[in-house]
């Protein structure tokens, strides 16, 4: 696991989830599983967030909302799709109102399977997301340095 100087902040959004994965995400933030020991903190504000955890599939009502949250998050950012519905649409893939998983709307970096995804898998996904975030951050910093040098 990469070592970070700063602790990334998590934002959780429920697409069209049944709540199973959402309460497992919240369970990760509470005692017993406690993802805060890895330095991640839960925030309610997209402008403060680095990692976006999305549960549930995408339908036309929440497509614009998800895109707006994604665009409000500052770069670098990482998206984690939690649960079978967020990965592919899950058991509801054939429903008339579901387009599919989160990657039909925004780019996804990490997929966490399960129905409902277990807290252990979610923490594993978040830890991998922290690693991806570190890579993106280093790339972002070096690209900015290049831009400053050339301007």
């Amino acid at each position: 696991m990469a070592k970070l100087n700063r602790s990334p902040w998590l934002l959780h959004y429920d697409g069209s989830s049944c709540n199973g994965c959402d309460i497992e995400v919240l369970a990760c933030l509470t005692p017993v599983y406690d993802v805060e020991r890895f330095g991640v903190v839960n925030t309610g504000n997209p402008l403060h967030a680095d990692i976006l955890l999305i549960t549930g599939g995408i339908n036309s009502q929440n497509q614009a909302v998800v895109q707006q949250i994604y665009s409000q998050m500052p770069n670098p950012k990482v998206v984690v799709a939690v649960g079978a519905c967020a990965c592919t649409g899950g058991i509801f893939k054939e429903c008339y109102n579901i387009h599919g998983g989160v990657d039909t709307t925004i780019p996804v970096d990490i997929y966490v399977p399960g129905c409902a995804a277990r807290p252990e898998s979610i923490i594993d996904g978040v830890v991998k997301a922290v690693g991806v975030f570190q890579e993106k951050y280093e790339k972002y910093v070096s690209e900015n340095k290049e831009r400053k040098r050339s301007s």
């Binding site: 429920d14 697409g15 069209s16 989830s17 049944c18 709540n19 199973g20 549930g56 599939g57 339908n59 009502q61 929440n62 909302v65 899950g90 058991i91 509801f92 054939e94 429903c95 008339y96 109102n97 579901i98 129905c115």
Partner: peptide
């Protein structure tokens, strides 16, 4: 925002499989 339309899945899944859909309403 959370409307999936799962009640229409009765046309695709048989009555035994609908237990799994019913469980995932919430």
């Amino acid at each position: 925002y959370v409307h999936r339309g799962l009640e229409k899945l009765v046309e695709k899944k048989d009555f035994n499989e609908m237990v799994y859909v019913a469980e995932r309403i919430c």
